[in-house]
């Protein structure tokens, strides 16, 4: 079980958090103008990387804030946490 450094609360056990999947997928501003394929790309396609992955996490049983996290899925090492809207770090 990881220890996650919530950008708002500090270090907490993983059991307080839930993972929201891949980060930095922006909801299209004009969905109606997209083709079925383009919309499906946004809706369904997610990366599942063995290695460094950018993820959304939610401090569900804490401050309820969403934030981003960079995690190596092969060894669960957390490289960075940062708030929504902040630029992703270069890893």
């Amino acid at each position: 079980m990881f220890v996650i450094n919530c950008p708002y609360c500090g270090e907490r056990d993983q059991s307080e958090f839930s993972c929201g999947g891949e980060a930095h997928i922006v909801r299209p501003k004009q969905p109606t103008e997209l083709s079925d394929d383009e919309w499906a790309e946004y809706l369904f396609m997610r990366k599942n990387i063995k290695g460094v992955q950018f993820e959304r996490w939610n401090h569900a049983h804490g401050c309820r804030k969403w934030f981003n996290m960079v995690r190596d899925t092969s060894n669960d090492k957390i490289h960075a946490v940062y708030k929504m809207g902040e630029k992703p770090p270069v890893i």
Binding site: G20, V26, R27, R56, N58, A60, R64, K65, W66, M84, G85
Partner: peptide, 13 residues
């Protein structure tokens, strides 16, 4: 609630 919070915090801050 959690879904609404998600949109509010991440898509429409």
């Amino acid at each position: 609630l959690s879904k609404l919070e998600d949109y509010l915090q991440t898509e429409w801050p």
